[in-house]
């Protein structure tokens, strides 16, 4: 059992595996982002209530989903790092944080832009947008904490603890914000909650979600490999890589 865990966690093994997996992830990401983009932008019918501004859903929802999933993935990687001391897990957590923050920003920006034609204003303290904003602050905290330590090891462990504390808090924050919203606001028209969407609308959305997730997977694999090169540059197997001519 332990041998398997440590074999999967060894940078060399992970590097080889991700070399093989990464191209497929990029292909899947490019295909589904391309297909979903064309379908969502040009082929899907306009919404009878919101008209063409509804097409923002195809970037807003995948980004929002990814923003939350990346935090959970980061916390899981942190847990693996703290329990089994697997370095690759920490590298994954380290490269996931900026991408998660970028996706949270994308969700916030597209939500705000969507708000103009639907609500008539850039920002509404809507429950979803508010919890997205808080999630952005959580990401920024994790990134800032990792950077604040001069020792990489301490920064990694501190960021791991914070990511785990954060992931326990995310559902609590989400539900408290929803409670707060229903308390202060009579239920208004929410952006993404809608009764049954026709397949011509939700299928492109599904494809876009797949595209965003495979982009995330491919990017993480690529950046973890870079992180391995950065941290393990002294190792014999790294020097023997054919990518590094001498």
């Amino acid at each position: 059992m332990w041998a398997i865990v440590h074999k999967f966690g060894s940078p060399q093994w992970f590097y080889r595996l991700s070399c093989r997996l990464e191209p497929w992830c990029w292909v899947l990401a490019a295909l589904s982002l391309g297909a979903g983009g064309v379908w969502g932008l040009a082929l899907a019918p306009a919404d009878y209530q919101q008209g063409e501004s509804f097409r923002i859903i195809y970037v807003h929802v995948p980004a929002a989903l990814l923003a939350q999933s990346v935090f959970i993935a980061m916390a899981l990687a942190s847990l693996v790092f703290m329990v089994w001391k697997i370095k690759v897990a920490d590298m994954a957590a380290a490269v996931m944080a900026p991408f998660g923050a970028a996706m949270t920003f994308t969700a916030l920006f597209s939500g705000a832009v969507w708000g103009v034609p639907t609500w008539g204003t850039w920002w509404v303290w809507d429950a979803r947008l508010t919890s997205m904003l808080i999630l952005l602050f959580l990401y920024l905290g994790v990134i800032a904490l990792r950077g604040a330590f001069s020792s990489r090891q301490s920064g990694a462990r501190a960021a791991s603890v914070l990511a785990m504390v954060g992931v326990i808090n995310i559902p609590i924050i989400k539900y408290s914000v929803e409670w707060w919203y229903t308390l202060h606001q009579s239920a208004t028209f929410s952006l993404t909650e809608r009764p049954a969407m026709p397949a011509s609308m939700w299928l492109p959305l599904l494809i876009m979600v797949v595209g965003f997730y495979s982009f995330f997977a491919a990017l993480t694999l690529l950046r973890v490999r870079s992180e391995i090169l950065r941290r393990e540059g002294d190792k014999r197997w790294v020097r023997a890589l054919k990518e590094i001519p001498s």
Binding site: L138, A144, A148, F149, L162, V165, G166, I173, S176, V177
Partner: peptide
Amino acid sequence: ALTVGLARGGVLTSLLILPLYIPVLVF
């Protein structure tokens, strides 16, 4: 505790902690 070893931990502590305070503030 996370920032006690850092020379300039003050603002960082707020950044880490304030999002976690929101549920308490709401209720």
